[in-house]
Design a protein around this nucleic acid. Structure first.
Lengths: 129, 129
DNA sequence: ATAACTTCTGTAGTCGCTACAGGATCAAGA
DNA sequence: TCTTGATCCTGTAGCGACTACAGAAGTTAT
């Protein structure tokens, strides 16, 4: 059994974040030592690692919670997992496209910024209707 | 002079957002009609449109505020504008790259999801150390 | 006169943490 | 044994940029 600091180190999830997950019901309340400190089993730490990986993949916390319960439930519902993941991939692709549009627009706006104009070409473009 | 609803319609900035900008000191406090309602001039509306464009380009609100004062100050500091914009473009590119990494990782994780496995391949990958 | 719309102020919620404050407890060295 | 420093506890507030109310007051249209 590990104290919260050790669980944090082993899982990569910050101490404050672990306590936050507990408050939000993402992870079950851990055992407490007689001195009231949280004690985590290897299984608990594994769960935190699982959460970390999901978050690093960009899944929203709510999805992460769902994935965790799918992972720990009996009979892994692979179809549900796939649906969740594909929706997420879709969202990621949309964000990429939006950012690419942004990048292009910004490039265009700043294109004439070096030509020693009197008034800033980017600002004047931002001011036009 | 326009009431806040009309200013919102003409600028594309939501009513609540306009009031928020005022609270935060992004825009100056507008005149008030005798009935205490905010009244916006065409110039005020133009400023809101400027803000909207900056936000649509993904500039943080703080940068947007800076751009606005650069735009309204005397002597447009084109160099400052350019620096701000290029830093922003850099950040956008970084985000794109991170999302692409995410997308690739997600694609790999879900690749084997259809082969009728007994246990979900994505979940088991998420569980391994 | 009545209904429906708009605006006002002030506050709280969103997401996922992160950073305190103020106190208790523990481990290790002198 | 004492002290120092690390770790832990609870509870609360802050981040960014809005968004969504509640409850009241004023305006416009029928």
């Amino acid at each position: 059994m590990f104290a919260i600091g050790e669980a944090s180190r082993q899982s990569g999830v910050g101490i404050e974040t672990i306590r936050y997950y507990e408050r939000e019901g993402i992870v079950p309340k851990p055992e407490r030592a007689p001195n009231n400190r949280r004690m985590y089993s290897a299984h608990d730490v594994g769960r935190l690692r699982f959460l970390k990986k999901c978050r690093d993949l960009g899944f929203p916390l709510a999805d992460t919670k769902t994935l965790l319960s799918l992972s720990e439930g009996d009979g892994e519902d692979c179809r549900s997992v796939k649906e969740l993941a594909e929706l997420h991939i879709f969202n990621v692709r949309e964000k990429i496209n939006e950012l690419k549009r942004l990048e292009a627009a910004l490039n265009e706006l700043t294109a004439n910024c070096d030509s020693g104009n009197v008034s800033c070409p980017m600002l004047s473009k931002l001011r036009t209707d």
